[in-house]
Design a protein around this nucleic acid. Sequence first.
DNA 1: GACATGACCCGCG
DNA 2: CCGCGGGCCATGT
Length: 108
Amino acid sequence: MKAPTAFAQRVYQQLRKVPAGKVTTYKALAQSLGTKSYQAVGTAMKNNPYAPEVPCHRVVKTNGMIGGFMGYMTGQTIEKKRQMLQTEGIEFEGVKIKDFEKKLFQFQ
DNA sequence: GACATGACCCGCG
DNA sequence: CCGCGGGCCATGT
């Protein structure tokens, strides 16, 4: 595990501001960071060495659908995260988040 | 130093 | 409504 770059750490710090029961999107994250590349955020996520500190599962797509946790993490890994999110107060509507817009955390 | 990939998003057909 | 292509920033090889 190599130390993430400054940009990645910035993403983590922003993500850490998200309280339990709230979620955020790649777009909102990138914009709050001052960048317009949502992909860069995802790139940092995959390198995420701060697993419990950085709730990457709290990051979802702009459409309210869960991120790539299901695309390649196929298995119980995503199921566990989904359950954890529900425990935090986030309800899931299949692969999407229920009232996702309402639970969206807005950076201030 | 340059090329290729990505946990993405938006627009067009 | 569904499918495909282009573009954005950062990271890794």
